[in-house]
């Protein structure tokens, strides 16, 4: 892999900064339900956008920059572990789903990512607390992942639609044209 073109590097850096800002804004909102692990995961919108516009390696770069910086800026070592486990599982599942679905059905990809993110958090909690009782939270986290994943997936679709209208829009992935995204929008 050669050096990254400046244009791409700048776009990805901007997106990473954006997702960090979204993450910070979201952590300022008090949790809606007193169940650990349930949150909207708005920063995942950016991960989805990068995954769709670029490829899994680029999404991994943006995600790891966001997680490491947010850990350094606002978090503790423990929350970094949770974010990392959730984030990596989320991205892996979304990359696989994105491939299987040819990049269509963004909310479905997002739901899958959210569910796997929550699965990663439960696994980390299981490892860190070593109390099997924490698995009792799993049904709540699966259902909440479906709801929040649907929401962030819809947000990502709108974000992509707006991004592609910008004159400096990121170059579309090969084999995909502007009409492709409009079509996938009406298909569901």
């Amino acid at each position: 892999m050669g050096p990254m073109p400046v244009r791409k590097l700048t776009s990805l850096s901007l997106l990473a900064a954006l997702s960090l800002a979204i993450y910070a804004a979201e952590s300022a909102i008090p949790p809606l339900v007193p169940i650990p692990g349930i949150k909207l995961g708005l920063a995942n919108i950016i991960t989805l956008v990068v995954l769709k516009e670029y490829a899994p390696p680029e999404a991994f770069c943006v995600l790891s920059v966001r997680i490491l910086l947010s850990g350094l800026l606002f978090g503790q070592a423990v929350s970094l572990l949770y974010s990392l486990a959730g984030g990596v599982l989320c991205l892996l599942s979304m990359s696989l789903a994105c491939r299987l679905l040819d990049g269509h059905y963004l909310p479905l990809i997002s739901i899958l990512g959210a569910v796997f993110h929550n699965l990663g958090q439960i696994l980390t909690a299981l490892l860190l607390t070593a109390v099997p009782g924490v698995v009792a939270y799993l049904p709540f986290l699966i259902l909440s992942g479906i709801v929040t994943g649907l929401f962030t997936g819809a947000c990502a679709r709108f974000t992509l639609r707006i991004l592609r209208r910008l004159p400096s829009a990121p170059p579309s992935a090969p084999g995909e044209d502007g009409a492709g995204s409009a079509r996938s929008g009406s298909e569901e």
Binding site: P36, L128, T129, A136
Partner: peptide
């Protein structure tokens, strides 16, 4: 006894 109380940052669980 349905859900344990958890504090993930302090790795505390009350069951």
């Amino acid at each position: 006894s349905l859900l344990p109380i958890v504090c993930l940052p302090n790795r505390l669980v009350i069951q």
